[in-house]
Amino acid sequence: MQLIELQDVGLLFRVRRLGRISFKEYLLNGLFRYSKKNCFEVQALEHINLSVEEGARLGIIGPNGAGKSTLLKLLAGIYPPTTGAHRVVGRVSSLFDISLGFEMEASGWDNIKYRGYLQGETPRSIQSKTKAIAEFSDLGQFLDMPVRYYSAGMRVRLAFSIATAIEPEILLVDEVLQAGDQNFQVKAEQRIKNLISSARVVVVVSHSLESLKGLCDRVLWLDQGRMQMLGPAEEVIAAYLKTKNPPTKAIPAPDDQRKAA
């Protein structure tokens, strides 16, 4: 069964040259004239055709700004495509931007609840998971503290523990997850591997080509929003390495994230 289907999907970002504009300017510039002049357009995705069937593990590779994270967000339903049709069947769980989205004044415990509710938990179902989440995060008594006082690493640890405490059908992972200290890193990788083996469909964005080879059976190579190649992991990665000669070690790409946002 096809769980993800994209037909000729395109996504066009309109970026305002001067950031946000004010209502005053909008009126002054004439009602509609500004919209053409003051925007420049970024074709983030173009002619994406993709169908992912049950049990597939798809990797997405490409240089920074190729549209990898954007594609992931489109699959998650956060960005609507501007052209083409897309269909995603099943409960989507996404692991990206996870260190955002905390209520800063609330304690770690409370934030576990909020995130859980957002992911569709009920007070009863979250109660049984809270302890496991707390244990996995290793935050101990810090959970009683408002999240405002957490370090960046602690936030990621908490966010990761909550986001992965679910049984996903469709799992979308962005590699920026690689955070936290060494100990947590090992645990997190193990947890992701477990999730990947239990989910019905997994889509992973990563720069770490070696680990993709192990995780995925198919790989999509994106460049400037277009599909360069889609096929068996080994083949695509070899072709990608030949033309680009990119770094083979994992390098987090904050740049990429910004672009998508």
Binding site: I78, S94, F96, D97, L100, G101, L118
Partner: peptide, 9 residues
Amino acid sequence: ESYIRQHPA
């Protein structure tokens, strides 16, 4: 905003 960016609620 941070919720909107993560979850299509």
